[in-house]
Each structure stands twice: as C-alpha cells, then as structure tokens.
C-alpha cells in the first residue's frame, strides 16, 4: 500500500470533508478545555492542509476563512485573526502542493512541521499570546507533535477516502 494521495474528485468526498472538519473543531474545543493543548496543533488546520493537498481543483480559501472564524469565536480572539493565519498557511500549501503530494508521508510530516512553525510565528505576531516560561517552551515545541500526528491523520483520511469511493 502506498502512503501517497489518491486521485479523487471533491464531490465524491464532500461529506467526508465536512464531517472531518466537524470532528476537527470538536477536537480543538476539547483542547481548549485541556491545559495540555499547547503541545498539540489545531486539528482543523491539519485537516485543511490535508484536503488542500488532496483536492487540486479547489483553492480552499473559503474553508480556511470560515474555519478560522470559528476558531476565533472558540478562542475568543479578534475575529479574522485565525482566519488570516489559516489563509496564509493554506496559500503556502497551495504554492507547493504538487511537490508535497509527491513526498512520502514522513516527508510530508516534516513539511507540515515547517508550516506549523510559520503558523506559530504568525500567531505570535498577530495575537501576542501571554506566555510564561513553561508555556513558552510548549508553544514553540508544538510543531514537533505534528511529526507523530500527521502520518496517523494522513493515512486514516486516505483509508477513509478509499473506502468511501469503493462504497
């Protein structure tokens, strides 16, 4: 079994995409409740990046904007702040998604690691989070967690997409 992206049209997996975003926001909400959230990336952003690489005919900016707005409401931050970050990171992904698709899942995780660093940097500039010393370490270590999370996420979504097409 290859671990790369499969060719599928957006309309074939529309409901899977919507459902995955719903699950992603629920997971992010659970992270807001938990003090360990600093070590974990926003799942909605990971899902957005995955679907951006999966469906080449869409730009995904509307999804990025709407998901960002929901996260702004969830985190009680200025409306548009998360939306802006999501749009910028999605733009970077769109620029290199053909190359990204050609990587193995572990190489993809490494690329996502850099994207998440860009996200954290943007977040640091735009939102000015209050970071005591222990939280500061967690904040800047967060992108490392995607090295573990991305392979699981990418392979699960790939498997689900495949099952959906067969069904």
């Amino acid at each position: 079994m290859t671990d790369r992206f499969i060719n599928v049209a957006f309309h074939q997996a529309r409901w899977l995409v919507i459902f995955s975003y719903f699950v992603g926001i629920t997971l992010d909400t659970m992270l807001v409740l938990n003090s360990a959230n600093l070590y974990l990336p926003p799942f909605t952003l990971l899902l957005l990046l995955y679907w951006s690489a999966q469906f080449l005919k869409q730009t995904h900016f509307i999804s990025a904007f709407l998901l960002g707005l929901l996260l702004d409401a969830l985190y009680q931050t200025t409306l548009g702040a998360h939306a802006l970050q999501f749009i910028v990171v999605t733009f970077i992904m769109l620029r290199y998604r053909l190359l990204f698709r050609s990587h193995s899942v572990l190489q993809q995780a490494l690329v996502i690691f850099f994207y998440l660093y860009a996200y954290q940097l943007l977040s640091f500039v735009v939102l000015a989070p209050v970071l005591p010393s222990d939280a500061q370490v967690a904040y800047w270590l967060m992108p490392f967690s995607c090295l573990l999370i991305w392979p699981v996420l990418a392979l699960s979504l790939r498997w689900l997409t495949q099952r959906l097409i067969r069904a």
Partner: peptide, 16 residues
C-alpha cells in the same frame, strides 16, 4: 482569491 481573502480578514480584524 488569496489577496481578496487576506484583505477581507484584515478588514474584519480592524472592524472587530
């Protein structure tokens, strides 16, 4: 589309 979305997000932030 990126430019439009980017400007819209900034305008939204300013308005809020």
């Amino acid at each position: 589309q990126f430019v439009v979305a980017f400007i819209f997000a900034i305008a939204l932030m300013a308005a809020d």
